[in-house]
């Protein structure tokens, strides 16, 4: 016997869309915003429910994915589109004036702004330095912990702790460590030179300070991913290798590395994306200084949107940024896939 929800065809689900649109439009015009929001939400949920009910038992893949896509749509994609729309209007979040259409004005402004290019350079510098340092340190740490040894679990937790600190604490405490009078670094240097050491006053020093704090915090992340790859290597492959008397170097490249590579790639991808958005540590540690020499693009976007309240300009800026990251990621994934196929 067919179940009730298996009887009706796809038409019904599609028919619910215009109905939902009409109901939401009526609700928005007739009811106060806080009520109409929930009414239109309920109607679209009902419409979505009809699609789900239709697909039940017929399209497993779509159904498994649906809840995740729906939530991401509400909480991420919809706001993204909204701010994309805002980037074409004159709009300031701290004014009540209704948005006026601006066309591509803000994109033109941002792309011709030398300040933006300068911030992008700073960001690129920091990303390259911090991510490469993280990959190297993370990989070395993973190699250190790849084998079993007594007390390994306890020591591993010690290494993982930096990652668990909050950004607020890392920013604040590295400031405390770099502090010229009573900071640990200055004190340590004073033992040798006899005078206090001010790390954050020079550009190179500030960059080094940020890179050190960020890489220190996130190398364990890379380590964990690499370690997950390392422990996944089947033991019998190593046994076979030791029977065949294969050198350590070849054993590493032919057995270990292929298992680690995909996770290493994933780590690189995620860390690069995160480093591109580097904000909290920079903001708390140097506030972009000295001058603007360590002001990353994320800090700049923050200043434009929350200190100068140029909402539209910051949205346009962010979209150019997003576009850059997407292009770079695509190139990266393309090359990663190419290498996997060969």
């Amino acid at each position: 016997m067919k179940k009730v929800w298996e009887v009706y065809p796809l038409r019904v689900a599609f028919a619910s869309i215009p109905a939902a649109l009409i109901v939401s439009a009526l609700a928005i015009t007739l009811l106060p915003p806080s009520v109409s929001f929930w009414v239109s939400g309920a109607v679209s949920a009902f419409s979505a429910f009809l699609f789900v009910a239709y697909a039940w038992g017929r399209h497993a893949g779509g159904l498994l994915v649906a809840p995740a896509i729906a939530l991401l749509f509400c909480m991420n994609i919809f706001p993204l589109l909204w701010s994309f729309g805002l980037s074409f209007f004159h709009y300031r979040a701290n004014r009540l004036a209704p948005p006026r259409f601006a066309g591509l004005h803000y994109y033109e402004k941002v792309l011709t702004d030398p300040v933006v290019w300068d911030r992008l350079q700073v960001t690129a510098q920091l990303v390259v330095l911090t991510v490469s340092l993280q990959m190297i340190v993370g990989f070395l740490l993973a190699m250190l912990f790849a084998k079993q040894f007594p007390l390994r679990r306890v020591l591993l937790i010690l290494v993982l702790t930096p990652m668990m600190l909050s950004f607020v604490a890392v920013g604040a405490f590295f400031r405390y460590y770099y502090e010229p009078t009573f900071g640990l670094l200055s004190q340590a240097v004073r033992v040798f030179t006899g005078e206090p050491y001010v790390l954050l006053q020079s550009t190179a020093g500030a960059i080094a300070g940020i890179v050190f704090a960020d890489a220190w915090m996130w190398s364990p992340f890379v380590m964990l991913l690499v370690l997950a790859g390392l422990v996944s290597v089947p033991k019998y492959l190593y046994e076979a290798a030791s029977i065949d008397r294969i050198s350590h170097w070849r054993r590493f490249w032919n057995i270990t590395f292929p298992y680690v590579r995909s996770l290493l790639m994933l780590a690189l991808l995620f860390r690069t994306i995160e480093a591109f958005k580097l904000f909290d540590v920079v903001f708390l540690l140097t506030e972009g200084g000295p001058g603007t020499s360590t002001e990353t693009i994320a800090v700049y976007v923050y200043r434009v949107s929350f200190q100068y309240f140029k909402t539209s300009e910051s949205a346009a800026l962010a979209y150019i940024l997003l576009f850059t990251v997407i292009v770079l990621t695509n190139l990266y994934l393309y090359f990663a896939n190419q290498r996997n196929r060969t």
Partner: peptide, 11 residues
């Protein structure tokens, strides 16, 4: 990928 700051206003 987008800095959280940008989606924060719409959210």
């Amino acid at each position: 990928m987008l800095p959280a700051i940008v989606v924060i206003i719409p959210i």
